[in-house]
């Protein structure tokens, strides 16, 4: 293919990428309407010293870490059971784990309103069985956000771990078992270390998704459990504070880039050692 025709193939896509993504993103960070970049930086400085804003950043990171840990702990066993099973049910169960990825986040999150709400399933169950007198407040708590986010991102963890486990030669497990290792031992010494790069990718995707998700903290956290995303929306849409919105956007983007960067480094180091 000649250089000129290659360029012609690239140009329309490149133009769209510039107008629909790159230029606005850069312009927003450096020069929001009527605000200077210095003011954005100043607002960010204030944010990083203010206890309320710091609380939101810390809540976002904390929820991201808890959700990531839970998704790996629940997702890896599912992936390894499915990848190592020869039952035809394994295919059905895999499809059942992937299906939610096609389904609207809004629909998936609504379910928790029914489960955790004031007339919710769990509340009724607890009072009905006489365990508690009054149904505890479950909705609009950090627990609700964590549950909602685990539901959203577990399919992603399962499918990423699944491709990692599927690449590990089953002969290695069998060799270890043949040499007398228990199932638990071959799981920890063969399967987990050899799938580690996939687990790191899964954890990164889940963390990045959790700290930027909007629907879940909006529906299940309400205004008392603000995360960076709901705070950003409020700055941009309710108070129309462009400097604060841009500053929050920078904090969120840096957080995602930082974690993706660290995981890329970990992945590379794992590959060479």
């Amino acid at each position: 293919m000649r250089a000129r025709s290659t360029l012609l193939l690239l140009l329309p896509g490149l133009a769209f990428l510039l107008v629909g993504f790159l230029l606005p993103a850069v312009a927003m960070l450096f020069a929001p309407p009527g605000v200077t970049f210095a003011q954005v930086i100043e607002r960010m400085g204030a944010m990083l010293t203010d206890p309320y804003d710091l609380g939101i950043i810390w809540r976002t990171v904390r929820i991201g870490l808890i959700v990531t840990a839970l998704c790996v702990v629940l997702g890896f066993p599912i992936a390894s059971l499915l990848a190592r099973s020869q039952s035809r049910w394994a295919g059905v169960l895999l499809a059942l784990a992937i299906f939610p990825l096609l389904l609207s986040n809004v629909v998936r999150t609504f379910g928790w309103l029914v489960v955790l709400g004031s007339n919710g399933v769990i509340g009724q169950l607890l009072t009905g069985l006489g365990i508690v007198e009054k149904a505890p407040q479950l909705l609009y708590t950090e627990l609700a956000i964590v549950l909602g986010l685990v539901q959203l991102f577990l399919p992603l963890a399962v499918i990423t771990c699944y491709s990692a486990v599927a690449q590990v030669d089953p002969g290695l497990d069998e060799a270890a078992r043949g040499l007398g290792a228990s199932r638990t031992r071959s799981f920890w010494t063969i399967l987990v270390p050899l799938s580690l790069p996939g687990i790191v990718v899964a954890a990164t995707l889940v963390f990045a998704g959790s700290v930027t998700a909007y629907t879940t903290p909006y529906l299940l956290g309400g205004s008392s459990q603000r995360m960076l995303s709901t705070q950003l929306f409020s700055y941009a849409s309710v108070t129309v504070d462009w400097a604060a919105a841009s500053a929050t956007a920078i904090v969120m983007t840096v957080l995602v880039f930082l974690v993706s960067g660290i995981s890329a480094l970990v992945g590379r180091k794992g590959a060479t050692s």
Binding site: F21, P24, A25, A27, M28, L29, A208, T212, Y214, S229, L232, F233, A236, A245, S246, A249, M252, T253, V256, F257, S260
Partner: peptide
């Protein structure tokens, strides 16, 4: 890679 909410704001 960039959070969608950030792109939306931009």
């Amino acid at each position: 890679v960039v959070p969608e909410l950030v792109v939306g704001l931009a």
